[in-house]
Write a protein that binds this DNA or RNA. Sequence first.
DNA 1: TTGTAGGCGTTATCAC
DNA 2: GTGATAACGCCTACAA
Lengths: 357, 357
Amino acid sequence: MERHGSRPPATLASLAAELGVSRTTVSNAYNRPDQLSPRLRARVMEAARRLGYPGPDPVARSLRTRTAGAIGLLLAEQVSYAFRDPAAVAFLEGLALECDSARVGLLLVPATPGSDDIAAVSGAAVDGFVAYSMPDDDPYLTAALGRPVPAVICDQPFVPGVDLVGIDDRAASRQMADHLVRLGHRRVGVVCMRLGRVNRDGPVDLVRQENARYHVQRHRLAGLRQAFEAAGVAWDRIPVVERFDHTEDSGASAAAEVLALDPGITAVIATSDVLAVGVIRELVRRQQRVPQDVSVIGFDGIASAVEAGLTTMEQPVTDKGRHAGRLMMDPARSAQGRRITLPTTFVPGRTTAAPRH
Amino acid sequence: MERHGSRPPATLASLAAELGVSRTTVSNAYNRPDQLSPRLRARVMEAARRLGYPGPDPVARSLRTRTAGAIGLLLAEQVSYAFRDPAAVAFLEGLALECDSARVGLLLVPATPGSDDIAAVSGAAVDGFVAYSMPDDDPYLTAALGRPVPAVICDQPFVPGVDLVGIDDRAASRQMADHLVRLGHRRVGVVCMRLGRVNRDGPVDLVRQENARYHVQRHRLAGLRQAFEAAGVAWDRIPVVERFDHTEDSGASAAAEVLALDPGITAVIATSDVLAVGVIRELVRRQQRVPQDVSVIGFDGIASAVEAGLTTMEQPVTDKGRHAGRLMMDPARSAQGRRITLPTTFVPGRTTAAPRH
DNA sequence: TTGTAGGCGTTATCAC
DNA sequence: GTGATAACGCCTACAA
């Protein structure tokens, strides 16, 4: 591989000068080969090779053409997290599928929560943003929406005028709870994901539930509440425990906390499969049998959990990614504020059963 | 969110004009707040808000500063594939970790194999490329190396003068084979990943083995050969079957093919865990017990396979990503051609045992 | 603390 | 089929 020497790197202009032709001609050699005599084009390419000219500079081209050839992805977590969460990975797969076929790059924007340094968002050379499951008032998202490029949001938040891809979280959640109610469960515990942007773990009171900055969690809790109240269970007696980090460890420790708050529960509802897996781990550690002693139900339908027999609510995560990608690529993006709601599927597993008495 | 109206979008220049100050002042307001009286800065920001100026254009800034704030990732597959292969996901996690802390974006470059359209690579606005496990003569990689930015390669290919992160594939592979030899296996079959850029499945002769375009596979096969020949087994009697797609289905069909070539084998060696899992699936389908009837061994140490008890050679995939990222960010990148070789660990599982006779 | 002005490397437009 | 010219939007010496 020829590394350029000490002389300044070749540019389109210097190539043109060297050849005694105009810059237009060199530009055409690359972008419009048919506008050129084959002979001249060959001469240009030969000189390019000789001078080590790597072809038109992408940034300069972008400036001129006003397109970056990439879309940016925004997450509520560090980028590396995206590769640790199975649901996020599945979403990314779907999104990448659409990027692939549109031949567009996917830029993972480093928007580390906490340090609210907008620079990475304002400075991302992209033709649009896809935001995946962010809180209602995220500064990175605000910055992205302020840029003059289209945006698509997946799951949350809902922003008027901005495309949204999601599911009916409240209905799905209610359905989950109904399943338990039907089995006969009345005393249950709930383990949910973070409800706000600041690191906080612990029991959640009604006020915090209703004011959650993450509306997906808000809706899921509301759905559970509906189901249990419809069954005559007082919702405020049900312990709800929140975890900031979305990991199995969080699920395990939250399970312990829920059990401490009400040792008599017969089921644990987790608002995600990752948490549910942690819950089960903790129950097993305590010699509790699932589902004989305690039932466990999750949400998401991630592959590994479903294979392991978790009862859960499956959502089409990869499809979410595809739809988000399609909305982004769709030329008719003038029609903004579109909304796509995808269906969910209840997946009965081997982790729920009637409570024993 | 204020959407700009019909007038041309605000620029730094138009903002300056509006305010009756120079462009420098506006630029400073964004990039060097301390060079400005707080009052003036406030005026600038206020006007920006009023005019819907989203801040300096990232592309124009990149052109001027000659940095893109992102690194590009090149794969031998479609981008979406990266999210389907556990090893690739782990690598990406490690790489993303470093990108996060360096506050640098990660651009997944759409380099679809087959359609050798270099444009996405030449047109990627990045400060460097990381290539993950590509064939020896990949045109995308060639294009990337031709760009005047640093590059780091993970696993393959080896390119003189370019940083490389990898493992000792031959030694690790030999160690795997030794394990089987020690258990007493002499008739085995091998299932390996693609050896060339064109779609091809089937048995592999010695010539193809030695000329494989993917040197990782080449080394792994060579390591196996060494081990078996040292044990007095004629390598050319051992069936080796290649699969282009890296999926469990491939592993399964390859297992069937290997068994057809030599029904008497007592063990199957797969050069990846994904393939190994497929191999086991096929064996189970045929009512063969693993390891009692046939032993199976994999390579990679992906989490799900290790948990499932697969005997395998674990490589530190996430660390590979981290090291690749660090090499990329390392300012001392003038010293190119660095090489990092990471250690592997043999993981005995429940899928290998002595052959029965 | 603020302003002047040149140039980063390219492509679109239009003329020849 | 080829060339001249004018942006694209910004940064940064340098000067005031």
